[in-house]
């Protein structure tokens, strides 16, 4: 047992938690913004996957990590835009369109990947890290937390920014109202459709970057269907966090740790079939739902289309 708790093991555990957790966090954060505004965004899985694909493609052709992440964000936006058009402007069912966008993104990315790379899976070069002086020399957590690609720090910063927007800005208030009582927001002279559109597009952008994180940093390659439910886990994170961005961060790291524990165990020489590893995050999600399901709270107007003047 003592061999398990070497420094290398612990470092790989924390590192794994972060690498697996950041995409979940970005998805959860994005979903939280949508949900706050009253949109249940089932299409987030498709947004992540398209972001993963486009981010990989851009990084592969330009060789730039930053352009890759931008591409990922744009990829997410490309799936979020139809969602905004169909669900918020035209008022189609958020669930039906969400399923459609996820299925479409799955099929389209697999198809495009097939036509571009056939059966080959080219690998991206490793992403450069940015060591924060001082902090990165702390044993165990130093190299795992403070010697990471810069996008990691930005992602954590996004949590703080979201929390600030939710709490301290007019727009945060408008988001909340769009989910709680859209009619009141409308009466106050704010365009509900516009607020919700901005929310969904932001979700797409964040989820797309999360997807690009998976393909560029997590795996270094693009494989069809590679997000494998990360977006759906993001939805659960958003539900359980009850509107608080920092809880999304904590939850995501917890799920990330759960994912990486098994990988770290494999590093330590304990062999576990990959299928069991793949079950863990979902088992964890369900456990959380069983234990705290009743406490999950969602805005009253979630999933409903707002029509001005309708009762």
């Amino acid at each position: 047992m003592s061999a398990l708790f070497t420094q290398a093991f612990l470092t790989s555990l924390v590192l794994g938690a972060l690498t697996a957790g950041i995409p979940l966090m970005l998805a959860g954060l994005g979903e939280q913004i949508s949900e706050k505004a009253g949109v249940l965004n089932i299409g987030i899985e498709g947004m992540m996957l398209f972001g993963a694909y486009l981010g990989f493609l851009v990084a592969y052709h330009t060789g730039s990590v930053w352009l890759g992440f931008l591409g990922g964000g744009v990829g997410g936006l490309m799936v979020a835009a139809p969602m905004a058009l169909f669900c918020i402007r035209m008022g189609l069912s958020q669930i039906v369109i969400g399923i459609a966008l996820t299925l479409g993104a799955e099929g389209l990315t697999a198809l495009l990947h097939h036509f571009q790379f056939a059966q080959s899976y080219p690998r991206l070069p490793a992403v450069e890290t940015l060591a924060i002086p001082g902090l990165s020399s702390i044993p165990v957590i130093g190299p795992a937390l403070f010697d990471r690609p810069p996008i990691v720090y930005l992602a954590v910063l996004a949590v703080a920014v979201t929390a600030y927007v939710f709490r301290r800005t007019q727009f945060g208030l408008a988001l909340q109202a769009a989910g709680d009582k859209p009619a009141a927001l409308d009466a106050a002279g704010v365009d509900v459709v516009r607020v919700r559109t901005v929310a969904v597009l932001t979700t797409g952008f964040l989820a797309g970057i999360g997807g690009a994180f998976i393909s560029q940093i997590g795996a270094g390659i693009f494989v069809p269907f590679m997000t494998n439910g990360a977006g759906f886990i993001g939805i659960v994170l958003a539900m359980q966090a009850r509107g608080r961005p920092f809880w999304v961060l904590c939850g995501a790291l917890l799920f990330g740790a759960c994912l990486s524990a098994t990988t770290a165990l494999q590093v330590a020489g304990v062999s576990i079939p990959t299928d069991i590893i793949q079950m863990l995050p979902f088992a964890a999600v369900l456990t959380v739902l069983v234990l705290f399901g009743r406490r999950a709270s969602l805005p009253p107007a979630l999933g409903t289309h707002y029509v001005r003047g309708a009762r």
Partner: peptide
């Protein structure tokens, strides 16, 4: 053309249904 194409058809079908 890989079979993933049916997924695309189904997705478009759903969106068309909505429209």
């Amino acid at each position: 053309v890989p079979n993933f194409f049916t997924l695309v058809v189904v997705a478009i079908l759903l969106i068309m249904l909505g429209i």
